[in-house]
Amino acid sequence: MTAKGRKLTYSLAINEALHQSMERDDSVLLLGQGVKSPWYVGNTAQGLLKRFGKLRVIDTPVSENAMTGAAVGASIVGMRAVVVHPRVDFMLYAFDPIVNEAANWSYMNGSRTPVPVVFWGVVNRGGEQAAQHSQSLHATFSHVPGLKVVMPATPFDAKGLMTAAIRDDGPVVFIDDRWLYDVEGVVPAEPYVVPIGRGIVRREGKDVSLVASSYMVAESMKAAAILEREGVDAEVVDLRTVKPLDVALILASVGKTGRAVIVDGGWKTCGLAAEVAALIAENGLCGGKNLIRRVTLPDTPAPASRSLEKGYYLDARKIVEAVMR
């Protein structure tokens, strides 16, 4: 079981986190649309219903607002609920329980009731799915005090951050990406957590810091390999948690390289890249012209046509261009 180097896909790493968390703690439950069906959530929920029963694994009606509120309410009275939204877009119906209730609950009740709930949203875009089957919205959630937001980039982090999110006593938004589901990586078999609020340097370099999260970490790694051939030594910082940011890690990296290219799979205006850029500038780093760049989605909704998608979504080439520009 603990054989070193065991590999698992990103989606099965999430599945293992759920199995182990539910086994360890009777108060953990999973609810949401499609937990019975790979059509919705891939294989992330496989085996859970059979093992833990329909009381704790609930495939729900299409009622995002009430189902998310139910997850919050159950967590207020001592459960640890994970509510899954097979597409982040669907979570907009649940903004009231997430933002008004869960995020504020502990504060407005004088810290008397913790709300250990996980809002799990899946980014599921591309494939000509257009504007309402593609949004990420991590910046929107990060804007709200009281919410933590994590975005794993690797199978190891997918398991460790899901486990950490479930064990956390406050509300955590866990955003994963279907484009990563088949990626394989080393995942220890035993339960473990990746601490919320801590990023990691994926590749050391001295010329420029590529600061990224989730799927953009993989593209940044590809970009760094291309840049190496061009004689540019790029460092890749994986944020892992986008709220709260690992400020020390970001500043240390950019302090070293003197240049930051921030790569984000969200929109530009008021986005994650803007926040990271402001943080760097506020701390007196990268003061010169052209030393901070943002590589983000354009400020437009996602298109359908494959030809338009190609221009819309980010890849290593666009990151390289931003560095070389």
Binding site: A70, G78, M79
Partner: peptide, 16 residues
Amino acid sequence: AGTVSLALGAALASKI
């Protein structure tokens, strides 16, 4: 109606 679904969740916890 913001707490209606919270009570729903508390009832769900009770059933579980």
